[in-house]
Amino acid sequence: MTKLLDVTNITAGYGDGPAIIDGAHLTVEPGKVHCIIGPNGAGKSTLLKAICGMLSIRKGDVMFKGERLNGLRPDQILRKGICFVPQERALFAKMTVRENLRMGGFIIDDKREVERRIDGILERFPILRERADQHAGTMSGGQQQTLAMARTLIIRPDIVMLDEPSLGLAPKVVQEMFDIMKMMSAEGVTVLLVEQNALMGLKNADWGVVLDLGRTLFEGPAATVLADPRIQELYLGGKKAA
């Protein structure tokens, strides 16, 4: 079994505050779509933030390609090839789509190479090409999410982590976002996503992870997780088991 990212028993929280996740673990295999589900406050976003270096890890290890990532800054982790798109999408509202993509290549020193890759991205996402000179803040939610995801591809990352990409989007647009994710994974980019809409997320994923009270509860093929009656009762809004 090849593990791209291996998170073992980590504890993390905000500042000096209590630990939000305590004993979470996670295995990420290359090229698949992984979906983390769990109720509000379970620590899903916190887990992603801990992996990408925005929160310091108090205990446990994050291993990426056999290398320990604990204690690295977000910019260093990005350079290793892990990209994170937070819930707020982290766009520069007052910059155009093209400028946003350019910022996406901030860590690449060769500016001409960045421009070439931007052109490639615009080629693949016509919706962005049409709006290349428009301010990101003026676009619709779905377009903004598309831009945020497309922007990660500039540096050709190994893993893209997405925090609730479907938040606030219409159902039809949500499906488009999942299609983009599938396309990304088909190209060999591993996707790790947190989804509030557990049913939707698991149906579109290969691998499911259930997180609650800061701990990993289940980890397995998405279909298995989806079928488990206890998970259905507590997390998928299904009928209560008798």
Binding site: R73, P86, A93, K94, M103, F106, I155
Partner: peptide, 21 residues
């Protein structure tokens, strides 16, 4: 450039590889 990006959106700059510290 990095300072201006950080001014606009600190988190985004950090996630795009700016050492905001």
């Amino acid at each position: 450039y990095a300072i201006r990006a950080t001014t606009q959106n600190r988190e985004a700059a950090e996630l795009l590889g700016v050492n905001v510290q």
